[in-house]
Amino acid sequence: MPHEHNDGCGHESHDHDHDHDAAVLGYQDNLFQHIDRPNVVALNANGDAAEIIKPWHLRLDEAKYIESDADDQLIIRVPFTGTVRLKAILLKAGPSGHTPASISLFPNEPTLDFDDIQDRKSTQEVVVPQNREVGEYAVKTAKFTNISSITLFVPASQGEDTSRIYYLGFLGTWTESKTQPVITVYETQANLADHEKIQGMDGTWSAPGH
């Protein structure tokens, strides 16, 4: 989708590597190289969650994706290798009714699952249009500063029985952690018998870019 992007360096701490292959990063504030991909986890999902965290030049590839399993809900946990000031989320989903209706964002809550996410108020929600291109969704950066992980919750698809995501990326700035990170072993499989579809989502989602 068309958008303007300023990749000039400002006064903030930046993780820019100006010699890095632009085909991999795309934007110089793409956080691809700062995502802890081996520990990316998706709950109620078929497919390897790490495989939707793709280099920029593979963003339109549809060979690898994750799709919800027992119903149309998904939780994706994404840890970073340092501290991040997040600016935007990049997403390619679909097709059609398999597109998430919306995505709820939870920074710094790396252990959220279906049992407790209904008791949490998300920091931001974005509406996802049916579009086979990569969409860029700006976040309220002040609320996504100094984060070490982000959890994304898909409460429903746009009509089909499952939700599907092909590509997930992040734009922002990265700072190396000053302390040794705590290594957390995440569950690799959700117990679908314990997964009950969350009801009562009020539908008051923010529009992309607001």
Rank of each mutant, 00 (worst) to 15 (best):
H5I: 10
H5Q: 09
N6E: 07
N6S: 11
N6F: 09
E12A: 09
S13I: 14
S13C: 03
H14I: 07
D15F: 05
H16T: 08
D19C: 06
D19G: 14
H20L: 02
A22G: 02
A23C: 11
A23Y: 08
V24K: 11
F32P: 09
F32A: 00
F32V: 05
Q33T: 08
V40P: 08
A42Y: 12
A45F: 11
N46P: 01
G47L: 02
G47F: 03
G47T: 06
G47E: 04
D48I: 14
A49V: 12
A49T: 09
A49R: 04
K54I: 07
K54H: 01
W56N: 15
W56S: 15
L60Q: 14
D61W: 02
E62R: 15
E67Q: 14
E67C: 13
E67G: 03
S68M: 07
D69H: 15
Q73M: 09
L74S: 10
P79I: 01
F80L: 04
G82I: 01
V84M: 06
L90E: 02
L91A: 01
L91I: 15
K92G: 04
T99N: 08
T99V: 14
S102P: 01
I103V: 15
N108I: 03
P110T: 04
T111H: 04
D113M: 00
I117S: 02
Q118T: 10
Q118M: 03
Q118A: 13
R120P: 07
E125W: 05
V127P: 00
V128C: 12
E133V: 06
G135W: 00
E136N: 07
Y137W: 06
Y137M: 05
Y137A: 01
A138T: 11
V139H: 04
K140P: 00
N146H: 12
S148L: 05
I150S: 01
L152T: 12
F153H: 12
F153K: 06
S157C: 12
G159M: 12
D161W: 10
D161P: 01
D161R: 11
T162Q: 14
I165C: 03
Y166L: 01
Y166I: 01
Y166K: 01
Y167K: 10
G169V: 08
F170C: 08
T175N: 09
E176S: 12
T179Q: 06
Q180I: 09
V182Q: 02
I183C: 07
V185H: 04
Y186P: 11
Y186H: 15
T188C: 08
T188Y: 04
Q189P: 00
A190F: 07
A190V: 06
N191E: 08
L192Y: 09
H195K: 15
E196Q: 13
E196N: 09
I198E: 02
D202T: 12
S206P: 03
S206N: 14
P208S: 06
G209W: 00
G209E: 00
